[in-house]
Design a protein around this nucleic acid. Sequence first.
DNA 1: ACAAAAGTGTTGTGCGTACACCCATGC
DNA 2: GCATGGGTGTACGCACAACACTTTTGT
Lengths: 228, 228
Amino acid sequence: MSFYREQDKHYVAVDCIVFGFNEDGLKLLLIKRQMDPFKNHWSLMGGFVKESESIDDAAKRITLSLTGLEQVYLEQLYTFGDINRDPGGRIISVAYYALIKINDSFQEILENNGAHWISVNNIPPLIFDHEQMVDTALNKIRKRCRTQPIGFELLPEKFTIPQLQLLYEAILMHPLDKRNFRKKILEMNLLDKLNEKDRSSSKKGAFYYRFNPEKYKDFTLQGFSFEV
Amino acid sequence: MSFYREQDKHYVAVDCIVFGFNEDGLKLLLIKRQMDPFKNHWSLMGGFVKESESIDDAAKRITLSLTGLEQVYLEQLYTFGDINRDPGGRIISVAYYALIKINDSFQEILENNGAHWISVNNIPPLIFDHEQMVDTALNKIRKRCRTQPIGFELLPEKFTIPQLQLLYEAILMHPLDKRNFRKKILEMNLLDKLNEKDRSSSKKGAFYYRFNPEKYKDFTLQGFSFEV
DNA sequence: ACAAAAGTGTTGTGCGTACACCCATGC
DNA sequence: GCATGGGTGTACGCACAACACTTTTGT
């Protein structure tokens, strides 16, 4: 055991790339940093890992404090460990990405944290290596959305097929054929059609769907191939 | 800056999952641990990250000390951060996997380190969460070998198509059709055929190939789809 | 009546998959 | 001459990709 005590110890942080989606496209939750170095610069939400918590728990704690949400899709992304990545000190950062459903209920918490939804197409300069973290996260979800139903973490409970297609187009950054998209997604039997229409975006109205929890879970475990 | 100083610090380790391949199949480099806790139990090679080095550099240093090899394919896998993963203390471990070409030149170094090549089909119980690390790494290279030419990191400079196929079969753990395999791999133009045969495993002999460095690099960057 | 978005089928093509026989050589 | 592994070609089916018109309804 004494061998352990001779070793260097490090500050370990968690940084969270939080994605959301609404009618304006794919969004990222960014904050104005409240401390030096780089006070008032745009930054990802982060925090230090405590002795008494696992890294996963630290990531949960940090997203909870930022959004007030207990249950979010959260996944470890990559660990950034260059010596000088933070000019304020040698800090190892484990990046996580989160997918959350944007709604009004927690906008107040976000504002209190100085957090804002920023379009992924218009990301301002970020501190440290946070831009690299965002790029890594975007690449990850682009791959992931082809094999796992992560898209649905970002939509409200009830959503329409055109909405879902817009989400995929925003993630993949290219247009999809709506016939092929609808066919592919429906024949997975992942969605349950509701007897209700969303008329907010057209006169005809689009039927609402919601995902089937069992099928959803199956696909989360087994994956699928979504070559749209 | 003073805010940083109030934070907890952690031991951070790197553990390396080192893969090799020879005529007996896919192998893993394991060591008999030389210190407590779990002295003499099977373990991955690991070490602590120093204040003065990046995590990547720590991984390089550790694989170098284990194998004596300067240039190995090394990639970060995942960071394991449960509080009690190591009963000897709270240690965060960043796992890396390495792919190396087995040859005689460094067997002596391996022996000095108490390291042994163990078939992935016959892995003994490992300390801590090292079995989970190995599983994660195996899943990673199974996915990876379908989109990136990582297989070639594991073969000697000159190799035959049947050898390459055996490697893929070992990684994917199922047999492949040799006609389809050969067709697919050759029409990538990734391999250069040599005017020389390997007669060690058959009377007819199999032509040697080596990979084309430019094509290899292209595929490393752009990926391919290897749906064998 | 017209604008605007939702919804619907078919066809071609390329790719993966399955499959059986000849070749070269050492013994 | 025979045993052993190396090497070769084809036919089928499926899934992706491309494509245009009708429906609904609010204004």
